[in-house]
């Protein structure tokens, strides 16, 4: 008896091994290297080499220089996440409860955009929102947009692109949560005098919270770090932190600054996720 327990324990550790090694190799080591890079002396270059001077000043410098795109990224990410949640919830709800035998087909349609490249999908939004495109023309016709207003190269286009590109990441966990809800619970709430609106807010919504939490995380985290949407759909005043890191790294070859910004971005997201998960109280829901 004791022997088998011990063996089981050992098997458990063995099972952790491949994933653990993978993480060590492709997360822990790069992250360590990233932190190291962020602390190199800012005077370094590929010609002179990089001196490790524990230059924490790099962090101060990048916050001073790039707090605007940083805030903007959080704002765009949060806005896109909000729209994803509203649109995604309605969609996931319809698929989970109302789609009947079309359920599988609808789910396939939700992930269908993944069959084409992220870039192509984003580029197609350029056509959609073009200044002479039908969307802008229509909005101008009904006077929602003025004659000289545009959609492309505005914050709206960036947020719309983010919303569109990350919507499936919201829909799938929401669907998984909603689909798991025992429909009899909703019937029971109706039996207990909850009208459909109350039943939704008192039963369906709280039971779908695990999906809401994972969906918002899966949307918010990559959306904040995204740079493709801002690059393609934005203008000079909509650049996000991902664009800044990219240009610092590839164009300016300022590795310490790029590294410091990346670390700040990671820590910031990590902190927000921890606070969020704590407040949402997901542990209790599961």
């Amino acid at each position: 008896m004791a022997e088998t327990t011990r063996r089981k324990g050992r098997v458990g550790y063995l099972l952790i091994l491949p994933g653990g090694l993978w993480l060590l190799l492709f997360f822990a080591f790069p992250f360590y290297s990233l932190v190291a890079t962020s602390l190199y002396d800012p005077s370094g270059s590929d010609f002179r080499g990089y001196e490790m001077s524990y230059a924490f000043g790099n962090y101060v410098d990048v916050i001073r220089d790039y707090w605007q795109p940083m805030l903007r990224s959080l704002l765009y990410g949060a806005t896109a996440t909000f729209f994803c949640l509203v649109l995604g919830y309605v969609l996931a709800y319809a698929i989970a409860f109302k789609s009947g035998r079309w359920k599988v087909l609808l789910l396939v349609l939700v992930i269908a955009p993944f069959f084409t490249s992220f870039l192509i999908r984003t580029l197609s939004w350029k056509l959609l929102l073009a200044d002479d495109g039908f969307v802008v023309d229509t909005l101008q016709f009904v006077h929602i947009l003025g004659a000289d207003d545009r959609l492309l190269a505005t914050p709206f286009a960036v947020v719309a692109g983010l919303t569109y590109n990350f919507l499936p990441f919201m829909v799938l966990p929401l669907f998984a949560s909603l689909d798991k809800i025992d429909y009899r619970l909703i019937e029971a709430s109706g039996d207990l005098y909850a009208n459909p609106v109350r039943a939704f807010f008192k039963v369906t919504w709280p039971l779908s919270l695990p999906g809401v939490v994972s969906g918002t995380l899966l949307t918010f985290i990559p959306a904040v770090g995204d740079f493709i949407n801002a690059e393609i759909l934005g203008n000079t005043n909509t650049r996000m932190i991902g664009n800044v890191i990219q240009s610092l790294f590839t164009d300016a070859n300022d590795y310490p600054a790029a590294g410091a910004l990346s670390v700040i971005l990671m820590l910031m997201i990590l902190a927000m996720v921890i606070v969020y998960v704590r407040r949402a109280g997901t542990e209790e829901l599961l």
């Binding site: 025992d182 009899r184 619970l185 029971a188 709430s189 039963v203 709280p206 039971l207």
Partner: peptide, 9 residues
């Protein structure tokens, strides 16, 4: 209800 249908949350 047969399954009780208690609200788990």
């Amino acid at each position: 209800f047969q399954s009780y249908a208690l609200f788990p949350h």
